[in-house]
Write a protein that binds this DNA or RNA. Structure first.
Lengths: 223, 223
DNA sequence: GAACTGATTGAACGAGTGTTTAATCTGGTG
DNA sequence: CACCAGATTAAACACTCGTTCAATCAGTTC
């Protein structure tokens, strides 16, 4: 159904798409029999095709990541990683995948780590380009700022999803997500252009107290 | 053991404290038998004392919230809600409770909603006081900015916990949490004092496009 | 000392889970 | 037609879970 070499292999991808939708709506604790019922098959057949429930979830991860990469390549004209998710959530067809991604970030695991690394890399790219273009202020520690901004934007989104969007159906999710983004716009723009504090005393005190640029330890990857 | 009217009722609170530690380290999916083993009792006894696993978790929620309120009352001199958590995470005795809170925020539910509302209320208080004192810039929509800042700070913390701090033992958690806060300090202070963007064009464009202050709909509570 | 109450245990129950297995069905190939 | 490989199913298996139950054990009260 979804861009696969269909025909003979239609059943496997139908199971996988049903699993993505079920995982997105009900979380990863959902049983194989519920997924099987959605796909019109039996629990045993899922194991026959994928080997195990974990392997099925890995297949779902791969599919979502593949689609995300395709969409990212298509829409490389504007927007960072976070707004790409916002765009995709608006498209009804991709809404379950965005929900699936948010649930992965909520649960942790390999896909979540991969995703946040991609978002950080994207943000680094856009922020560096912004610095060169003269629209983004330089930072005393660009890598730390990029991680900070990516974690804040993504974490806020995941927390909102956990508290308000987790039990939304695929139909009502796009509107919810859109409203979340709308509520975000003004405070984010205010903070990004005007800051929050009136004077520089707190920053200067911190710079006095910790003057040297924080020399990273050996493991700056698993930070 | 922990501020309860001890003696005869020691067993119940010992079970509850063991449950908090287990829930914090292994998540809420952990079995009653594991908790019982930690407390040196049997699964049946937990049900005898608390009624059900859900009721046990509610008791844990209450206990953590009670301790949090006590600590907040003790340390009302400085720091907002988020830094209160940071302070508590530094105290070895409270580290499991901070982990428990982060896990609650990760999983959602009643305690998570209560907690984020308290954090927002605290932030509102501190930001309003900062405005009066002239150190915090006024916002075009103060409530929206407060929610935004609280969600960003809390969500970032929860996401970091999900990806890097979830499987930390109670001994290594304080140091991990401290390092997270240290990595945060410089980018946060930079953003709060200097902003991110060089010019005001993006904000002004947004204000032109959506000029009126967003008049909240009927349901601004469940936002 | 008898009776009662609550704490506590070990075992069992019933409902879930993921997985395995044997059997059946289906379609293509010699 | 015979044969075979793969798809598919229903049932069973082994396991964990929360919960229940009957039976002890200890302490208090009459």
């Amino acid at each position: 159904m979804s861009g696969d070499r269909d025909g003979e292999f239609a059943t496997a991808s139908r199971i996988r798409d049903a699993a993505i939708a079920r995982f997105a709506r009900d979380g990863f604790r959902v049983g194989l029999r519920a997924i099987a019922a959605d796909a019109g098959v039996t629990a045993g057949l899922i194991v026959h095709h994928f080997g195990s429930k974990d392997a099925l979830r890995r297949a779902c991860d791969e599919q979502v990541l593949t689609v995300l990469r395709e969409e990212k390549a298509k829409a490389l004209t504007d927007g960072s990683g976070a707004t790409l998710l916002a765009q995709m959530a608006g498209v009804e067809r991709y809404a379950p995948m965005v929900q699936y991604l948010l649930r992965s970030l909520q649960a942790g695991g390999a896909l979540a780590t991969t995703l946040i690394e991609h978002l950080i890399a994207d943000a680094e790219e856009y922020l560096a380009a912004g610095e060169v273009a003269g629209v983004v202020r330089p930072s005393r520690d660009r890598a730390a700022r990029t991680r900070y901004l990516a974690y804040q934007a993504t974490g806020s989104m995941v927390l909102w999803f956990t508290l308000h969007g987790a039990q939304a159906t695929a139909e009502e999710f796009p509107a919810l997500f859109r409203r979340y983004m709308d509520d975000l716009a003004l405070p984010a723009l205010e903070l990004f252009t005007e800051g929050l504090l009136v004077d520089r005393s707190m920053l200067d005190e911190y710079l006095m107290y910790v003057p040297d640029p924080p020399d990273r330890d050996a493991d700056n990857t698993a930070r």
